[in-house]
Design a protein around this nucleic acid. Structure first.
Lengths: 148, 148
DNA sequence: TCACTATTGACAATGAATATCAATATCATT
DNA sequence: AATGATATTGATATTCATTGTCAATAGTGA
């Protein structure tokens, strides 16, 4: 029988603890929401959802907790055409993001092959290319069904 | 002898005029800076540079002019890891952005080939993919030389 | 040149994000 | 389990970028 895998929220709480931060009810609530919701969330949305799990939660604590999670590399800010105030669990290794334009559902994928493109652009422009962003936008299966 | 091509600033000023906006000294200053500077600029940087061309220019006018240029599709907001408050002349057709991480110099390029990748991700995830962002970051030739 | 009115700059107001601070809760140690 | 040092909390105040207000000014077509 395989050892049960630690859930993502537990992993994040452990990381907080390992870095000298205390594990509190407000932080547990924020972590559970952001780690499991599966859609981009801005600070206020996190606040609304997490308040259901911690009645006394304040918006300021959400900001502070997101800041710490981001500093630990557990979450990251998502860039979208209309604003960059939303967060998601951080990419693991070399991944890219696929976002639903309707509901904000997010999937990561890997396996891009941009070497040839990047070499060509580097040669043409004289730039040394060190990083790239690739992000796809569309409709998730659920929103395709709903919109038909 | 070829007809002299209208400069980018002139094209933009013409576009403002054609859309019922007046061509004023403050707008001329902002347009000339953003259209020719070749690097990403945030509103305050535009203000500082454009003030040299229009002594009375106010920061609020910069915001308002950028807003109009963006609405006309002449400029667009650039997304960067640390902030999304900078502008560049808008892409023409299907282009992508290459940015210098040191000085903000910007180049557009075309000729990506992501069809196969996008089809594969669409099939794997069930998403209908409608848009993509590809953006490269690195060091421009000038900054490579300077950094050596 | 003239008159209409869009535009301007100064100032006020908004809104997201951050700093302050006394009260509270965590957690290593007892 | 109890303790106590101190990190954390929520409420409030504050900052800063951006947007609204408004009388004075300047562009534009006639």
């Amino acid at each position: 029988m395989p050892e049960p895998t630690a859930s993502i929220p537990d992993t994040w709480l452990q990381a907080l603890h390992d870095n000298g931060y205390r594990v509190t009810a407000p932080r547990r609530a924020v972590v559970e929401v952001v780690a499991t919701h599966g859609r981009v969330l801005n600070p206020y949305q996190v606040f609304e959802l997490a308040r259901a799990r911690c009645r006394t939660l304040g918006l300021v604590t959400v900001y502070r907790t997101l800041e710490k999670l981001e500093a630990l590399g557990l979450i990251e800010r998502v860039h979208q055409p209309h604003g960059c105030h939303a967060y998601l669990p951080a990419k693991i290794g070399h991944q890219h993001l696929l976002l639903c334009q309707v509901c904000g559902r997010a999937e990561y994928f890997s396996g891009d092959d941009l070497e040839a493109l990047i070499s060509r652009i580097a040669a043409r422009t004289g730039y040394q290319i060190r990083e790239h962003w690739l992000q796809l936008f569309g409709l998730c299966a659920g929103c395709r069904a709903g919109a038909s």
